[in-house]
Structures are given as C-alpha cells and as structure tokens.
Amino acid sequence: MVIRTQGLSFSFGNQQVVNSISLEVPEGSIYGFLGPNGAGKTTTIKMLLNLLQAGEGSIHIFDKELKSNRIEILKQIGSLVEQPAIYQHLTGKENLMNRAMLLQVSEQRVNDMLSLVQLTSAANKKAGQYSLGMKQRLGIAHALLNDPKLLILDEPTNGLDPNGIIEIRELMMRIVKEGKTVFVSSHLLSEVEKMATHVGIINHGKMMFQGTIQDLQNINQPHIFIETDNSADAANLLKRNHIDITEVENDYLLVPFTSKQQIGDINNLLVQNGITVFGINKKHKDLERLFLDITQSN
C-alpha cells in the first residue's frame, strides 16, 4: 500500500472532524477520496502531509511511518491542498522557480511543467492576474514539479472549465500509467468515476465505503424502472400485491429487481388492472445517486 492509515482521528476542539479512518491506497491506483463539503477530506489530506498532527491513529506512506520519516516521505509526494498557494506578486514562472529552488529541480523541469499545464504563454504574467483556472493549473504544476511517486490533489478541478477538467483527468491517467499513484479528493463522484480505480467515501469524518470502483458498482443493487400513466395508482396496486416499492415519483416508480420473470409479472399485473405502461426495464442507480445514498445514510 502506498498510503495506509489506521484509526486516524482528528478534532478541532470538541468537534470530531475525522473519526477513525483507515485508508488503504494501493500502488498505481487513482484513489478517489469522496465526500460532501465539510466531510473531513481536507483535514485527512493535511494529516497525510503532516500539516496537522493526528489526534489518534497511525499513518504509513510508502510503508514508512510518517512522523519519523517525514522528509524522506515528503520528497516523494506532490500535493495541491485546497486553493492553490501562489505568490501573487511573482509571475507564474517565478512561483515555480521558487519551488524548484527549494526542491533543487532544474529550470528545464519548470519549463516542462509550464508547458504541461499550458501556461507557457502566461509564464511571465503576474500570478495575481491569473484566472482561477490558470491558478489551479499552476498549482498542479507545483505538485508535479518534483516528479512525485504519489500525487495528492485536493479538489483539483475547482474552477476549471469542462475542457480543463478533462485535461486534468487525462493527466492523472497518464501519471498512473507511469507507475505513480494519485490520491484525489472530490465532492462529486461523477468527476472521478471515469478515472478512479479505487474509491473511499467519507461523511461526517467517518469512512462510509472503501473499495474498488467495481466493488462500488456491485453494492449498487439493480431496480425495475416503471413508467406508467399514473404512478400513484400503480404503486398502490403493487403494494396490495405485496411488492416492495423503493421510490415513487410523478412519472416513474422503482421496484427492487429480483428476476426477469418478475418484470413480466409486474407488467401483466399493471396492464390487467387498467394501468398503461409506457416503459419497464432493469436499471442500476447511477453512481452519483449511490454516492448520495451512502453519504446521506449517515
């Protein structure tokens, strides 16, 4: 495991922000760390970077204990936490040069990173004049400067337009192909589901789910999606016939799927009782709904 935490907890005063989190981030994965705003994602990330001292629990990165191997571990990490930290009075390139100086990285690498995040033409412009998207890209360039084995990105697509989001996604997938690991937080599952290999879902400081993206799909039980001319009458009819209803909306209702035969039986039942069926089929909830169900169940 590249990141392994056990019983990680953190409190701000009396408020428990992170509650006994055990992360397992395998090497070469894109780990989507998901949760609504205020769930404890940034606090967890700050503990992984030794910016916050964990109240309880342990953190191992690259199989080494973080506190006692802080410098050695941080050498192999690139990070972007919250909004990019940028000196507004320096140009974009000067910002990178300053960090390159501290990391002992060459100017060529700075130019390469500027080109990678498409800021070469704005390299000599004051960073204070950058748009939010440009600042975000500069922040990502900062994180990549030392060619890290582990990239920790906290909501990296904040402020980016759709093209920018796709670019970042492709960039992460490219990085992982080079054998690196990406730990990326987001409050939107849709943003990471296309690239994540592993997912951790956190809410109110607690880990609600952790596993591969396939595991997440597997807990996503299929439903029968039924469109009729009268959802309320259809729902009452099904209930009278001892069929569970998951959800009733004006234009559709959902029933837990058990078999194909069940779909035919329900169709017959509805039609024989004078309800017009516009459509009936097996359907998985999209992951976004599943994510909401998981985070709201707490």
Binding site: N50, L51, L74, K75, Q83, Y87, Q88
Partner: peptide
C-alpha cells in the same frame, strides 16, 4: 505576511525540508 497573503504555509511546511 508574504506567506499569509499567498496562503503558502501549507506548501512550505509540506516541503521535504525540516
């Protein structure tokens, strides 16, 4: 203030420097 203004304490203290 140069660090407060740029919100860079987090990046400085996550550098591989003591």
């Amino acid at each position: 203030n140069v660090e407060h203004k740029a919100d860079t304490w987090k990046t400085i203290f996550s550098l591989p420097i003591s």
